[in-house]
Design a protein around this nucleic acid. Sequence first.
DNA 1: GCATTAACCACAG
DNA 2: CTGTGGTTAATGC
Length: 226
Amino acid sequence: MESSGCSICLLKSEVVKDLDTSELNTLGKSCVEAVFKKGETIFKQNALSSNIIYLQTGLVKLMIEGPQRIQILRLKKAPCYLGLPTTMGDKINNYSAVAIEPVSACFIDINVFKNLLRINPDFSYEIIIELCKNELKQFHRCVKLVQNEIYGRLAGNLLYFADEIYQSQEYKLPLSRSEIADMVCTSRETVSRILNSLAKDGIISISGKQIKILNKSLLEKISEKG
DNA sequence: GCATTAACCACAG
DNA sequence: CTGTGGTTAATGC
C-alpha cells in the first residue's frame, strides 16, 4: 500500500494525528489494505496473530468461544483499532473478529506498530487511553451480564446499539436474534419473546430488524434495574 | 405448594 | 431465520 494512501486513511484516526511524516511513511510501507464482505472473518481465535488492524469503515463483531457456547463480546465500529489486546497480549488470538457490514481495514505489522509506540509518546498515550476506556466499559458490561436479569441485559444492549453504534433511536439491528442471544447470554427464543413484549408495552417498536425506541427513559430504567 | 422465569425442544412460516 | 406453544427445572413467596 502507498504511504500517501495510508496517511489519508489514518487521518481519520484521532490517534494517528500524533505521527510525523517519516513515521507515517514507515507505517505506510508495512500497511496492507483489505476488504471483507459481510460475514467474513477478519481474524480467528486460536490462529497466530502478527498484525494490528485499523478498521477504516464498517462494523465488526468480536466473539470468543466459551466453555458452553459462543459469546459475542462487543461490536466495533470504524474508525478504530482491532486486535490490540489479542495481538499485544498473546501470540495466539484469544477471540475472533467477523465483519457484520462490509469492512475495509489496514493490516499493520506488529513490529512496526511496536516501534511506533516506542518512538512516539503521544501516540502511545492515546493508545493507552483507548485501551483503558475499553477496559472500563467491559467491566461495566460484565457486571451487568452477571447481575442483571434478562430484561435488563437486553434493554441495555438495545441502548448500546442506539447510543454507541448508530447514534440514533431508530436503527436496523445488526445481528440476528440468535446472535443477540449470544451477546446477552440467553436463548434466541427469549430474545424474540422479550422484544415482542417490549413492543407490546409500547417501549419500542419492531418490524423485522428495524427497531425504534419509543420510551427511552423507561428502557433505561429497565436496563439499570433489570 | 403455587407462581414465575427462562431454557430447551419441536414444529411451522 | 423467527415466532409460538408445550414442557421442565430452578427459584421465590
